[in-house]
Structures are given as structure tokens and as C-alpha cells.
């Protein structure tokens, strides 16, 4: 599991670079890029910090990944987790950050 950063949508603001607990993201020609994809912990800090939803999270094939990617769209207290399935379908799970886990 790791992340990919979309070159087209990245605005080069550097917030993900600042946030990554593994110092794993660098800036290349004005765009953020993950330096060692295998060393990502999957903590999603970069997804939460990105103001334009340019970071996508995916599972490695060794973890059962089959092509889906996940990103976050922020709306005030709500995180809309968008899962893009390989055939184009998009599933959305919205989590209100003001709600505690039920379990």
C-alpha cells in the first residue's frame, strides 16, 4: 500500500511534504512526488493535509490491491472518502469528524 500524487492537480504547496511522518515526499519540478513508495506506512496524513485532493491511496498487489484508489474531499467537518473502482465506478463514504467511533 502506498500513495500516488496526481501531477495535474498538485499545486506544489508542500503541505504533504511537511506532514509525512517518514519524510518520504519530495518536490520535483514544482510537483510533490513520493520518493520511496515501499516505505509508505499508509497513515493518510498527506491525504488529510492536501488542499486539492491530489493524493490517492492504493493497496499494493501483495495486500490484495486490484486497481482501486482512494482520495479525500474535504467539506468543513466532513471527510468524503472517494473510492475510484478500476471500472470507473466511484463509491463515497462520508465521515463526520465530530462523531466518535461507535465501536
Amino acid at each position: 500500500m502506498s500513495i500516488r500524487i496526481h501531477k495535474e492537480s498538485c499545486i506544489g504547496c508542500g503541505r504533504c511534504i511537511e506532514a509525512c511522518p517518514g519524510n518520504l515526499i519530495g518536490l520535483m519540478e514544482g510537483k510533490a512526488k513520493i520518493l520511496i513508495p515501499e516505505d509508505c506506512w499508509g497513515c493518510t496524513s498527506c491525504l488529510k493535509e492536501c488542499p486539492v485532493g491530489a493524493v490517492a491511496y492504493y493497496l499494493g498487489a501483495d495486500m490484495g490491491g486490484r486497481g482501486a484508489v482512494m482520495s479525500i474531499e474535504k467539506e468543513k467537518e466532513i471527510y468524503h472518502w472517494k473510492i475510484h473502482m478500476p471500472k470507473g465506478e466511484i463509491k463515497v463514504i462520508s465521515v463526520n469528524r465530530k462523531n466518535a467511533n461507535q465501536y
Binding site: I93, V95, N101, Y103
Partner: peptide, 21 residues
């Protein structure tokens, strides 16, 4: 549904795995 949300708050890979599979 509650489990899918709870895991997004702490271990999103599990939620993605459930949805993807």
C-alpha cells in the same frame, strides 16, 4: 457501515480492502 467508517478513522486500508474486494 459503522465498521467501514470506524476503520477510515484509524486504518483506511481495511475499508479500501472491503470495498475493493
Amino acid at each position: 457501515e459503522d465498521l467501514l467508517k470506524a476503520y477510515l478513522n484509524m486504518a483506511p486500508a481495511q475499508t479500501l480492502k472491503w470495498i475493493e474486494s
